[in-house]
Amino acid sequence: MSTKKAHNQTEIIVTGFGGQGIILAGRILGMAASLVDKKESTLVQAYGPESRGGACNAQVIISDTPIHYPYVNTPKILVAMSQAGYDKFAPFLTPESILLVDQDLVNPEDAVCDSFAIPATRMAENLGNKMMANIIMIGFCTAITGAISADAAQATISTSVPKGTEEKNIKAYSKGYDYGRSTLKGREKRAAGQTGVMA
């Protein structure tokens, strides 16, 4: 892969248990990048029995140029919401990758890259529905990585969640996004004020 292409292409894996909304999270990332941010994006997803309880995953590629091979080779971003999911994809991380975990569900002790933690499921429970942990994670991911724009994330969440739950989900998104912003501010000064470490 050429250097130029590597800069243009962001490969993301979202992983967790089936039922956590992993596929929806991947779908929102891909759709936001494609329809709102106007980039190329491809989503492939786990489809077999694993999507109903095992180590489920969604693979999203976001690019400025047409995407040929649709699967992730080297994840730039790994969003892990289960230990099994993390264990499965950790070997593919590189020092340049960014790892985002639900800190109550994943212990990334041997991570080779920068990792960012959020108690997403606990925060979702405090908001009254743990099913929104995936949306909190999208907010967190957007703030930390800038893989999709904040506008695109919010617009896409609103059209992707069940009718009547839009407001709650946007609130969940904001919680995750704000948590991500504070996390970044708490890091080195050079990161302060930027929308993402990749910006």
Binding site: R27, S41, T42, L43
Partner: peptide, 10 residues
């Protein structure tokens, strides 16, 4: 095929 059938794109 399964991949083209299940993958999402614009």
């Amino acid at each position: 095929d399964e991949i083209v059938g299940h993958m999402s794109e614009k």
